[in-house]
Design a protein around this nucleic acid. Structure first.
Length: 200
DNA sequence: TGGACGATTGACT
DNA sequence: GTCAATCGTCCAA
């Protein structure tokens, strides 16, 4: 296959790509320290989704989401937090997967130092992950194959391990079941008591 | 050019 | 449970 950096498995619809990212690892080498986390909760967004940044077309801000699978998209939330997305699909289609929850695998000391706290508070929310990985807007559009933050593919989880629910913190299309998470993992945020469709 | 809002978090009651 | 922090982006006029 073409030189896709090994991210061909993400060149599918974002609804298919999102659950495939569960269990994969993100590795940050920013600041000379390696921090590695395992993805346990994600949300899918694409160009046809009113809640997506790309719904109204490409802008300087969301340009990274149109670069195709294997790129990183970082945006600022509420002026304070940086949230990381894995861009999916082919170039020209604005789709990506927001990383909402992850569990530490390596470099926990650096994560604790950056976060100022430990436990599940290290990385059980999108802004927390951005801080733990030292992500910022300059990383938006970089490659997940050889950039400051890299993505390492892991085998897909079994269907029983994956929960599906509604997304969190949005006001448009808030009822679409596009949140995927690892059942029973402590680094999956509880949010505002979001019900989820396949709980139980 | 001005104004409203956001894919959030953390502190406080 | 409730609410402030904080600023770039986007839409309306």
């Amino acid at each position: 296959m073409a030189d896709d950096g090994g991210f061909g498995f993400l060149e599918v619809s974002v609804d298919d790509a999102a659950p495939r990212l569960l269990g994969c690892e993100l590795v940050s080498s920013i600041g000379g320290e390696e921090v590695r986390v395992r993805i346990v909760e994600v949300e899918a967004y694409d160009q046809f989704d009113p809640a997506s940044h790309t719904f109204r077309g490409e802008t300087p801000r969301n340009r990274a989401m149109f670069l195709g699978a294997g790129h990183l998209y970082v945006y600022r939330s509420h002026g304070i937090h940086f949230c990381c997305n894995v861009v999916t699909g082919e170039a020209g289609i604005g789709s990506g997967v927001l990383i909402r929850g992850a569990e530490p695998v390596h470099g926990i000391d650096a994560m604790i130092r950056r976060r100022g706290r430990g436990g599940a508070e290290l990385s059980n929310g999108p802004g927390k992950i951005g801080q733990a990985l030292a992500a910022d807007l300059s990383l938006s559009g970089t490659s997940l194959a050889d950039g400051p933050i890299r993505l390492i593919r892991r085998p897909a989880l079994s269907p029983e391990q994956v929960g599906i629910g509604v997304r969190v913190g949005i006001s448009k299309a808030a009822d679409l079941p596009r949140r995927f998470y690892v059942r029973g993992n402590p680094y999956v945020g509880r949010h505002h008591g979001a019900p989820g469709l396949s709980e139980g």
